[in-house]
């Protein structure tokens, strides 16, 4: 059991560190003012998504880090769960923005988007939160399972 906990701790700690790094990158990039990209990763540069969003991602990471030690304990588990919720808010709103962008056909186009245009909206690059999303889901699954078996 202790070994399993250690493994979980290391995983969450790594996730936390990566998340903190992403958050800091967001804030720094938006402070400089230009959005940048690394192949499929896009760091937004505007005040809203980059500045505020970066702040939120940073805090998600801090939540992970502060909760990763002894996740079996409920207060730590709740911190980790909350870190994931923050990631979901970020990723969720990004995905929602993509969806709303993909449906209409543009200013001079037809009512609805063409199929290729529709799919094109979902092509990379993505914001950091979207990359973190799958991992945060796994973490929450783990915590819920742990909560239920207790």
């Amino acid at each position: 059991m202790a070994e399993k906990n250690n493994f979980a701790m290391i995983c969450i700690a790594i996730l936390g560190l990566v998340t903190v790094a992403f958050g800091l990158a967001d804030i720094l990039v938006s402070a400089v003012g230009d959005g940048t990209g690394l192949s499929i990763l896009e760091i937004p540069g505007d005040m809203f998504r980059g500045g505020w969003g970066g702040f939120i991602v940073l805090f998600a990471g801090l939540f992970y880090l502060s909760g990763c030690k002894n996740v079996a304990e409920v207060h730590n588990a709740s911190k980790v769960a909350m870190g994931s919720v923050l990631i979901w808010i970020m990723a969720g709103t990004d995905i929602f923005a993509m969806i709303t962008e993909s449906i209409p056909g543009g200013e001079d186009g037809p009512w609805f988007n063409s199929l290729s245009g529709f799919l094109g909206t979902y092509a990379p690059p993505y914001a950091p939160a979207i990359f973190l999303l799958p991992f945060s889901l796994v973490v929450v699954y783990y915590i819920l399972k742990q909560e239920r078996t207790k």
Binding site: W52, I56, V85, L86, I89, M90, G92
Partner: peptide, 12 residues
């Protein structure tokens, strides 16, 4: 931070 995130999501 959570409140900020909720407001962010709300606004977005």
């Amino acid at each position: 931070p959570i409140a900020i995130a909720v407001l962010y999501g709300f606004w977005s």
